[in-house]
Amino acid sequence: MHIIIWIIAGALLPWFPFSWIFNRLLVSAPGAWARALAVIVLPQLGLLLLLKSGAWLILGQEMPQALRALALFTAILYAYRAAGTRDVQIWARFMGTSGLSLTWLLIGLLPGHWGVQLFALAWSIPAALMLVWAGILTRKTGGSYLGLTGGFARVLPRLSVLMSLTALAATATPVFPNFFALLEAMESLPLIWMPLLLLVLLLWGWTVGRFLQDLLFGIYHGESLHDLSVGGTWLGGLALGIFALVGLFWGGIWIIN
């Protein structure tokens, strides 16, 4: 019984190889908004399943080393795979998967379950936002692939700014909440495991660097494009601003805990 619960939970709150199902579910969602919603809801359902089934308590008593290793392996694998893609939608899925898999490290370690759920949200929100931007980019250019044209900073300056900031938010850049979430994950891990988590951080840095390079730089040669509306930009900026403010005010609590 427990094994089935763990497999289902692994498909919702991704760890390899069931992270494949998680990604498949996201791909099959109809439209960008549905994918964004799914990347927020599925991990929360996974956590709820663990909580209700009692698996949470088992993990809280003693986290199996294999599970810890698997969570870190998933984070490393998907961060590495994100470096090999130039499609914004796939990039957002992979980065979301990489960050969300770290949630497994905290289950049972934080007092109560709210901290863990918020930890998962810290990774879901930037992934969801990026999936929305990918949808808008697809509507404007016919796809969210960055390898053909590039140079969007000049032709889509507003959308590029939002995408750049979201990419930074997805890769644990201060002062977004997942920077502090990552600190929390570090605090909870035995020191010997920490280099693996730092490898994830390094891979994220590499990945986001490649992403921004493809997105911003170069001269655009395609058809003329209409940028995101001013209202849409303010809305997106507001969402990111609130996300950053939450990180600033809330970050310290994680550190002290």
Partner: peptide, 10 residues
């Protein structure tokens, strides 16, 4: 990367 027109800057 201020000058985004130049791939070398990126």
């Amino acid at each position: 990367g201020h000058d985004t027109d130049r791939p070398a800057a990126g």
